[in-house]
């Protein structure tokens, strides 16, 4: 697992590996240490192998927090299996997936 955070025009989170019970805790820890100044947060899943329900929870809470702050969350580069997970759970309707 690897987490890369970049501050460009947007706040970019690149997650490498499986977004599961253990790794989402670690991701949460990493995000807690960051301060989001940008108005847009991009969660890049280009190198994310798959996402489990723990990952979904994380994304949902992230979306909630950002919405409260009036900021946007975009999910980028979703692979087939992740797309399927988002679809069957209806997360496609809540999250902005590009």
């Amino acid at each position: 697992m690897e987490i890369r955070i970049k501050h460009e025009d947007a706040f970019i989170i690149e997650f490498v590996g499986r977004l599961d019970t253990v790794t989402s805790l670690e991701l949460q820890k990493a995000l807690d240490q960051e301060e989001v100044k940008e108005n847009l947060v991009i969660f890049d899943m280009k190198e994310t192998e798959y996402i489990s329900s723990a990952g979904l929870r994380l994304l949902l809470s992230l979306k909630k927090n950002l919405t409260k702050q009036g900021k946007a969350l975009e999910i980028h580069n979703v692979n087939d299996i992740c797309k399927e997970v988002f679809k069957v759970t209806g997360f496609v309707n809540v999250l902005t997936i590009k």
Partner: peptide, 19 residues
């Protein structure tokens, strides 16, 4: 999720077994 829910009321759990 349908996309019209109140975000605050959403329970973030319960998707595991469903998946």
């Amino acid at each position: 999720l349908q996309g019209n829910e109140d975000l605050e009321s959403l329970n973030p759990g319960g998707y595991g077994v469903f998946l």
